[in-house]
Deep mutational scan, measured.
Amino acid sequence: LAALHAEGPLAGLPVTRSDARVLIFNEWEERKKSEPWLRLDMSDKAIFRRYPHLR
């Protein structure tokens, strides 16, 4: 499970980098069924690119 911001401008976004990794992994797991070539990237760089508020 990932903790998400409940309200405000960040509502629905992950609270920590660990939470972001959970979301990225879950999405990758779903997408790899139809796109088996996808690589999993959970590096800090990938997290910041996707969720800049975690910098």
Rank of each mutant, 00 (worst) to 15 (best):
L40R: 01
E30N: 15
S43I: 02
S34Q: 14
F48P: 00
K32Y: 08
P14N: 00
M42F: 09
R39C: 13
A20C: 02
I47D: 00
F48T: 07
L38I: 10
I47K: 00
D19C: 05
T16V: 01
K45Y: 12
E27P: 00
P9Q: 08
E30G: 10
S34Y: 13
L4M: 07
A6K: 15
N26A: 14
M42H: 04
L40V: 06
E27V: 06
R17Q: 02
K33V: 13
P36F: 06
R31S: 06
S34N: 11
W37P: 03
K32H: 14
A6R: 13
A2P: 12
H53W: 04
P14W: 01
D44H: 08
G12N: 08
V22P: 01
V22I: 13
L54R: 00
T16N: 10
D41F: 02
S18L: 09
R17T: 15
F25D: 01
S18V: 09
G8Y: 06
Y51E: 00
T16K: 08
F25H: 06
P52T: 02
L4A: 06
D44F: 08
S43N: 03
R39L: 11
R17N: 10
E30V: 13
L10I: 04
L13H: 05
A6D: 11
R55P: 06
T16R: 08
N26S: 11
E27Y: 06
V15D: 03
L1H: 12
W37L: 09
E35C: 10
R31Q: 10
R39M: 12
Y51G: 00
R39E: 15
V15P: 03
E7W: 11
L4K: 06
T16E: 04
A11T: 12
E35G: 04
K33H: 13
F25T: 03
A3C: 13
F48S: 12
V22T: 15
H53M: 01
R39V: 15
G12E: 03
R21I: 07
G8Q: 04
E27M: 04
L38E: 07
K33W: 11
Y51V: 00
I47Y: 01
K45L: 13
L10Q: 03
L38M: 06
D44R: 08
R50H: 05
R17F: 13
E30Q: 15
I24V: 07
V15I: 14
L40H: 02
P14S: 01
T16F: 06
L13D: 02
Y51W: 15
K45D: 13
W28R: 01
F48G: 10
A46Q: 06
R17D: 08
R49T: 14
P52E: 02
R49N: 13
A20S: 01
A2Y: 12
L23W: 03
S18M: 12
E35I: 09
T16L: 03
W37N: 12
A46F: 06
A3T: 15
R31N: 10
L54Q: 00
E30S: 10
K33D: 08
R55T: 11
E27Q: 06
L23F: 03
F48Y: 15
E30R: 12
A20M: 02
L40S: 02
L54K: 00
L23Q: 05
H5V: 06
D41K: 05
R50F: 11
G12P: 04
P9C: 09
L54S: 00
A11R: 14
R49K: 14
P9E: 11
L23P: 00
P36Y: 06
K32A: 10
R31H: 05
S18D: 12
E27C: 08
E30Y: 09
L40E: 01
L4H: 05
G8V: 06
W28H: 04
P36C: 07
D19P: 02
D19R: 02
F48D: 12
A3I: 12
M42Y: 06
W37T: 12
I47P: 00
I24L: 11
F48I: 10
W28C: 02
R49S: 14
L4S: 05
R39I: 15
P14E: 01
P14D: 01
E7A: 15
A11V: 09
E27R: 04
K45P: 09
I47N: 00
D41Y: 04
H5W: 11
R21E: 13
V22G: 04
S43G: 08
K32N: 07
A6G: 08
H53D: 02
W28V: 02
R17P: 13
E30P: 02
H5F: 12
M42C: 10
V15F: 06
Y51D: 00
E35K: 10
W37G: 12
S34W: 12
V22N: 09
L1V: 13
H53F: 02
K45A: 11
K32T: 07
A6F: 12
F25R: 09
E35V: 03
P9T: 09
R17L: 15
R31D: 04
W28T: 01
R50E: 06
E7T: 12
V22M: 11
G12Q: 03
D44Y: 08
G8T: 07
S43H: 03
K33P: 08
R55D: 10
N26P: 02
L54N: 00
L54Y: 00
L54G: 00
R49P: 02
R39A: 13
S34T: 15
A11D: 07
G12M: 06
